[in-house]
């Protein structure tokens, strides 16, 4: 019976992902992106990773808030105007090709890992996905990527400050 919540949430996620792409209104798009990411977060909850669920909600919700502000302040405030009409024809072709490649890749992975997925290990460690485990992993096996990420974020922050401080003529 575990598939019922999965299918429900997946349907919600796919619906709002489609709405995000097809919506002509930037704010509606951002709002449906929130719902897509919240439903992805619920997948983590279904997998027993409560910590990642909360991080997904907190981090992405905050980030999309900034997107909202961009939409309101930089794009037309009304938001309900027509779509941005600058789709070169090669964009469509590229999207279809890349989408097919991605689909093929996913299919390949599912076919190869199919056995593993069906024989889901019944016994998950009690502390799976707990903050302690994630913290230990971050500061041992994944220390280098973790530090590099923080450096990149620091660089981005300094860049933002420099841009904001520049005196425009």
């Amino acid at each position: 019976m575990t598939w019922i919540p999965f299918v429900l949430i997946a349907a919600v996620a796919v619906f709002f992902a489609l709405y995000l792409v097809l919506s002509k209104n930037a704010v509606h798009g951002a709002l449906s992106l929130v719902l897509v990411l919240v439903s992805l977060a619920i997948f983590f909850l279904l997998l027993g990773a409560e910590f990642i669920f909360i991080v997904q909600v907190a981090v992405y919700a905050g980030a999309i808030m900034v997107l909202f502000l961009f939409v309101m302040m930089l794009l037309n405030v009304g938001g309900a105007e027509g779509p941005l009409r600058e789709n070169p024809s090669w964009q469509l072709a590229a999207a279809i090709v890349l989408g097919c490649v991605l689909l093929f890749e996913a299919a390949l992975h599912i076919a190869r890992a199919g056995e593993g997925v069906r024989h889901f290990p019944q016994a998950i460690a009690a502390d799976f996905g707990s903050p302690e485990r994630i913290g230990q992993l971050l500061f041992s096996s994944y220390l280098l990527p973790f530090e590099i990420t923080s450096l990149v974020l620091l660089a981005a922050m300094i860049g933002a400050v420099v841009l904001a401080l520049r005196r425009f003529p």
Partner: peptide
């Protein structure tokens, strides 16, 4: 009773801003 209760409260309080912003917009 969740073992990350305090993060849950923080995450939900970060969602609270949506109501006000969307109302204003």
């Amino acid at each position: 009773h969740v073992n990350i209760g305090i993060l849950y409260v923080l995450a939900l309080s970060s969602l609270a801003v949506y109501g006000i912003t969307l109302a204003g917009w």
